[in-house]
Design a protein around this nucleic acid. Structure first.
Length: 808
RNA sequence: GCCCUUGUGGCGGAAUCGGCAGACGCGGCGGACUCAAAAUCCGUUUCCGAAAGGAGUGGGGGUUCGACUCCCCCCGAGGGCACCA
C-alpha cells in the first residue's frame, strides 16, 4: 500500500466516480425486463431560483437514504426529479435584470442539475421534467378542460384576496395571517371575475380519506389539513323579516341557544345586506360603512383588539321559536362567504356577539346555566349545560336541546341539519405572465369557449416586447397577436383568457408525469400508474402541509373519478424534513443564505456534508448548522476508508470461518441500522456505522487478524451501509476491497439471526427498582437458577436487610 | 383565544415493550507519537462525594416491584389556526 492510498481526499474520490456512475446508471428505473419489485420515492421538486442551497442539501440527503436503502434491499426504485419552473420569482428576477424569464429559468435548471449530479443524488435522470415546458403545461390545460366539462372548473365574480405588491390575486391558502405568502405584503379584497376549481365538492372525501394516511403521515400535517377543511355540523334556521315577504336563513352550530338570540347580523359585504337596507333611511350610512369595510386590510380585519363595528339596518327578523323581533345589523365580523352570510346573535354564549352587544348596548340573555355570568365577566360561556329561559328546551342539556329544537322547527320547515366547511374553492387565476395560459376563448357571441383539445397546448407568447411589471392585469393582455383569435365556434373575433394558472396546478399532478415524461398522447399512462403508484415515500418541507398536499390530493380524487387511476390518495408515506438554520435563524434566499452550500462542499467534500445532514438529528427536526461539525464527519469517513485499506484478505472468503465476535457485531449493527432507516431514525443508522468502525478497529487492535474473513465481512457491510449516506467514500472502499463498481447495487447483507442471539447476557438485578448489581449468565439459564444467583450477589445482599416480597 | 408538538449532560442527540438513562458524535480534560505542530491513536468526561455511596430525564402529584416512557395538575419553548357563528 502506498502513501497516497492512505490519505483520504474527498475531492480526488469524487473525481474518480462521477463518470463511472454516469455509465452504470445504478438508479435507472426504466431498464427493460427489470423483475425487481417496484418502489416510488419522491422528493418535492425544487423551484429553480438559483443554485442549490443548504435546505436542498438536507432534503436530498434524506430522500437519498430512503431511495438508496430500498435499492440495496433489492427494489426497483423510481426516484425522479424535475423542476417546478413556473412562477413569480422567475418573473420578478427577469423584470429586475431585464431578462426573459425563460432564459433565467433554464439557466438555473442547468446549474441545479449539475449540482445535483455532483451531490450524487440517486435520481433517475431519464425522467426529468420542467413544468414550464409546453409539453408539460399542455396537460395542465387538458386537465383544466376535463374539469371544466364536469363543472369542476368555473368562473365567478367575488371579493378575492389581492396582493398589493405582486398585483395578483391569491388563493385563500396563500394568505398567511393577512399577508401574502410570497412577499409578506398587505392583502386586500378586490371584486374580480376569476377561475376556480371546485375543491369544496371534495371536502368530505379529503377529510374521510385521511384515515388511510393515519400513522403514515405526520399527525401534525393531518391535523392541519383537518383544520383547514374545517367541517362543522349545525343547523340552518329560517327567520322571517318583518315587513318583507322574505325569509333569511342563518347557519348555527348552537340552535339550542335560539331563545338567547337578541339581535341578528348580516355580513356587510353580502348581497343580502344590500337587499335589506334598500328603501330604509339608513341606506347612505350603510354605504359609507361598506366602503370603509372594503378598504380594511386583512391584518386590520383580523386584529383581536379591534372594536366591533356595524350599522343598524332598521329591519327586524322574527325569531321562529318565540316570535321576538330582533334588530338586524350589518357588520364585517360576519363573513359573506361562510354559511349563509347571516347569523343569529346570542351574546351570552358567543364571545363575538357579546362584544358587539356591549359596543351597541344590546340586551344579553342567558339561556344555558353556568357558574360564570357572561354579563359581569364580559366572557361568553360556550360550555354545555342545562337550558333555562328557553321554553320547551328548559331542563335539557346541549345535545338534547339541539335535537329537540331542530325537530320542532323542522315540522314547520323552519330548520334543518346542515354542514359547513371552512374550505373555499381554489382560486386558480393569476394576473401574471410566467404560468400556464387558460385554454379558454372569450367570445362576445358564444361566451366562454374551450380551446379544442387538438389545439393544445396554448403556448405562452414570447416575453420580449411585453411589459411584465405588475400592474393588476395580466401582461398577456398586451400580446395582441396572441390574444386575438377567432372563436372556435362562430369564427367571429374573440379573445383568449389572458390570465395564467396558479403554479400549484403544475405541482398537483407532477408525480404522475414522471411515469412517462415524454408521452405525447396523454398526460400519463394508466397502466404505468397502476404499476408504480401511489408514491411509497414522499419527502419534503412542512411548508407544504396544506397548500400543495391538499391540492395534489384533490387532483388525485378527480383523476380517480375520471377512472384514469385506481388509487385515491397520492402519497402513502410522508416525511417532512426540518429546516437548516444558522445560529437559530432560518436560511432563505430572502433572508440571505448565511452559509453557502458550495463553500461547505469545497471545504469538506460532498460525503461529509451529506453525512452531517443525516447525522445531525431526527430528519423532521431543524438542523442548526452551528451545532454540526462537517470536519468531524470527514474524519469519521477517513477512518472508515482507512479500515478498507487494512483488510488483507481476498474477496470471496467465507465469513463463517472468521471471528465470531466480529461477526456478531456486524450482524447486530447491520440489523439495527436497517430498522433505524425504516423508521426514519437515520441519525441512529449513522451512529451504528460509527459503532461498526469503532468495533472493527478495536478487534484488530486487540489481535484479530486483518486477514480474518469476518473483518472483511464487517468492512464490506460497512461500505454498503455507508453507501446510503456517503456514496463516494463507500464506492472507493468497495474498490479497495477488490470489488468492481458499484456498491450501490451490492445488496443489503443477509442478517444471520443466529448471530443476533448472545450466549451469555448481562443480567441486571434490581431491588425496589434500583440497580443493585449485575451478573454475567448463560442466556438459557433457568428462572430458579437465576434467582438463586441473584440473591447471592453482594449488591442484593446489602439491600435485603428486610425481606423480599416479589422477584422478577 | 383555540388546537397541536416538545422539554434528557457544556452542546447535537440515543433509549421497538414500562426494565442498565446518557448509545453515537461535538466540545472539554489527560496521555501516546513528534524537536515541535498538524494529522492520527488511546483513556476520560451527568452531578455531589476522596471513596463507599447518593441524586438525577422542566416542576408537583399519581399508577407500578420498577416510569424519560402511562395518568392528572402546573411551568417553559416551538408550531398551526385565528371573527368560520
Amino acid at each position: 500500500m502506498n502513501q497516497e492510498s492512505h490519505t483520504f481526499d474527498p475531492h480526488v474520490i469524487q473525481e474518480r466516480w462521477l463518470s463511472v456512475w454516469d455509465e452504470i446508471e445504478p438508479f435507472n428505473s426504466a431498464k427493460e425486463n427489470d423483475l425487481r419489485e417496484k418502489k416510488y420515492v419522491l422528493d418535492m421538486f425544487p423551484y429553480p431560483s438559483g443554485d442549490l442551497h443548504m435546505g436542498h442539501a438536507e432534503a436530498y440527503a434524506l430522500g437519498d437514504v430512503i431511495a438508496r436503502y430500498w435499492v440495496q434491499k433489492g427494489f426497483n426504485v423510481m426516484h425522479p426529479i424535475g423542476w417546478d419552473a413556473f412562477g413569480l420569482p422567475a418573473e420578478n428576477a427577469a423584470i429586475k435584470r431585464g431578462e426573459n424569464p425563460r432564459t433565467w429559468t433554464y439557466a438555473n435548471i442547468a446549474t441545479q442539475k449539475a449540482s445535483m449530479r455532483n451531490y450524487a443524488c440517486s435520481f433517475d435522470w431519464q425522467r426529468v421534467l420542467n413544468t414550464c415546458d409546453p409539453e408539460y403545461y399542455k396537460w395542465n390545460q387538458w386537465f383544466f378542460l376535463q374539469m371544466y366539462k364536469q363543472g369542476l372548473a368555473y368562473r365567478k365574480a367575488s371579493a378575492v384576496n389581492w396582493c398589493t405588491s405582486c398585483q395578483t390575486v391569491l388563493a385563500n391558502e396563500q394568505v398567511v395571517a393577512g399577508l401574502c405568502e410570497r412577499c409578506d405584503s398587505v392583502v386586500t379584497k378586490k371584486n374580480l371575475t376569476q377561475w376556480y376549481f371546485k375543491i369544496t365538492d371534495y371536502a368530505d372525501r379529503l377529510l374521510d380519506d385521511m384515515q388511510q394516511l393515519e400513522g403514515n403521515w405526520p399527525d401534525k400535517v393531518l391535523l392541519m389539513q383537518r383544520n383547514w377543511i374545517g367541517k362543522s355540523v349545525g343547523a340552518e334556521v329560517e327567520f322571517e323579516i318583518e315587513g318583507l315577504s322574505k325569509s333569511v336563513t342563518i347557519y348555527t352550530t348552537r340552535p339550542d341557544t335560539l331563545y338567547g338570540a337578541t339581535f341578528f347580523v348580516v355580513a356587510a359585504d353580502s348581497d343580502l345586506a344590500l337587499e335589506l337596507v334598500r328603501g330604509t333611511s339608513v341606506e347612505a350610512e350603510f354605504h359609507t360603512y361598506l366602503e370603509k369595510v372594503k378598504q380594511t386590510s386583512e391584518i386590520e380585519r383580523l386584529s383581536t383588539t379591534r372594536e366591533k363595528t356595524g350599522v343598524f339596518l332598521q329591519r327586524f327578523a322574527i325569531n321562529p321559536v318565540n316570535g321576538e323581533k330582533l334588530p338586524i345589523y350589518a357588520s364585517d365580523y360576519v363573513l359573506a362567504d361562510y354559511g349563509t352570510g347571516a347569523i343569529m346573535a346570542v351574546p351570552a354564549h358567543d364571545q363575538r356577539d357579546l362584544e358587539f352587544a356591549l359596543t351597541f348596548d344590546l340586551p344579553i340573555r342567558i339561556v344555558v346555566e353556568s357558574d360564570e355570568n357572561p354579563i359581569t365577566s364580559r366572557t361568553a360561556t360556550s360550555d354545555d349545560g342545562i337550558h333555562i329561559n328557553s321554553g320547551s328546551l328548559n331542563g335539557l342539556n346541549t345535545s338534547q336541546a339541539i335535537e329537540k329544537v331542530i325537530e320542532e322547527l323542522a315540522k314547520e320547515n323552519k330548520a334543518r341539519k346542515s354542514v359547513n366547511y371552512r374550505l373555499r374553492d381554489w382560486l386558480i387565476s393569476r394576473q401574471r405572465y410566467w404560468g400556464t395560459p387558460f385554454p379558454i376563448i372569450h367570445c362576445p357571441a358564444c361566451g366562454e369557449v374551450p380551446v379544442p383539445e387538438t389545439e393544445l397546448p396554448v403556448q405562452l407568447p414570447d416575453a420580449s416586447g411585453l411589459d411584465l411589471s405588475p400592474k393588476g392585469s395580466s401582461p398577456l393582455g398586451a400580446a395582441k397577436d396572441w390574444l386575438e383569435v377567432p372563436c372556435p365556434e362562430c369564427q367571429g373575433p374573440a379573445q383568449r383568457d389572458s390570465d395564467t394558472m396558479d403554479t400549484f396546478v403544475d405541482s398537483s399532478w407532477y408525480f404522475l408525469r414522471f411515469l412517462d415524461p415524454n408521452n405525447h398522447e396523454k398526460p400519463f399512462d394508466s397502466q404505468l400508474a397502476k404499476e408504480w403508484l401511489p408514491v411509497d415515500q414522499y419527502v419534503g418541507g412542512v411548508t407544504h402541509a396544506i397548500l400543495h398536499l391538499l391540492y395534489a390530493r384533490f387532483f388525485t380524487k378527480v383523476l380517480f373519478d375520471m377512472k384514469l387511476i385506481e388509487f385515491n390518495e397520492p402519497f402513502t408515506r410522508l416525511l417532512n424534513q426540518g429546516m437548516v438554520l444558522m445560529d437559530g435563524s432560518a436560511m432563505s434566499k430572502s433572508r440571505g443564505n448565511l452559509v453557502a452550500l458550495s463553500d461547505e462542499l469545497a471545504k469538506h467534500g460532498v460525503d461529509a456534508i451529506r453525512l452531517s445532514m443525516v447525522f445531525a438529528g431526527p430528519p423532521e427536526d431543524d438542523v442548526d448548522w452551528a451545532d454540526v461539525s462537517p470536519s468531524a464527519s470527514k474524519k469519521f469517513l477517513a477512518r472508515a476508508w482507512r479500515l478498507a485499506h487494512d483488510v488483507t484478505s481476498e474477496p470471496g472468503t467465507d465469513p463463517r470461518e472468521g471471528s465470531v465476535e466480529v461477526r456478531r457485531l456486524t450482524h447486530k449493527l447491520m440489523h439495527e441500522a436497517g430498522l433505524a432507516v425504516e423508521s426514519y431514525r437515520f441519525n441512529v443508522a449513522v451512529a451504528k456505522s460509527m459503532e461498526l468502525v469503532n468495533g472493527i478497529r478495536k478487534a484488530i487492535d486487540s489481535g484479530v487478524s486483518t486477514s480474518d474473513p469476518a473483518v472483511r465481512e464487517g468492512v464490506e457491510s460497512l461500505a454498503i451501509l455507508l453507501s446510503l449516506f456517503a456514496p463516494y467514500t463507500a464506492e472507493d472502499m468497495w474498490q479497495v476491497l477488490g470489488h468492481p463498481p458499484t456498491v450501490m447495487l451490492a445488496g443489503w447483507p443477509t442478517i444471520d439471526q443466529a448471530l443476533l442471539v448472545e450466549d451469555t447476557v448481562t443480567c441486571v438485578i434490581q431491588v425496589l427498582g434500583k440497580v443493585r448489581d449485575r451478573i454475567e449468565v448463560a442466556a438459557d439459564i433457568s428462572e430458579s437458577d437465576l434467582i438463586a444467583q441473584a440473591l447471592e450477589t453482594e449488591g442484593v445482599k446489602r439491600h435485603l436487610v428486610g425481606k423480599n416480597i416479589k422477584t422478577v
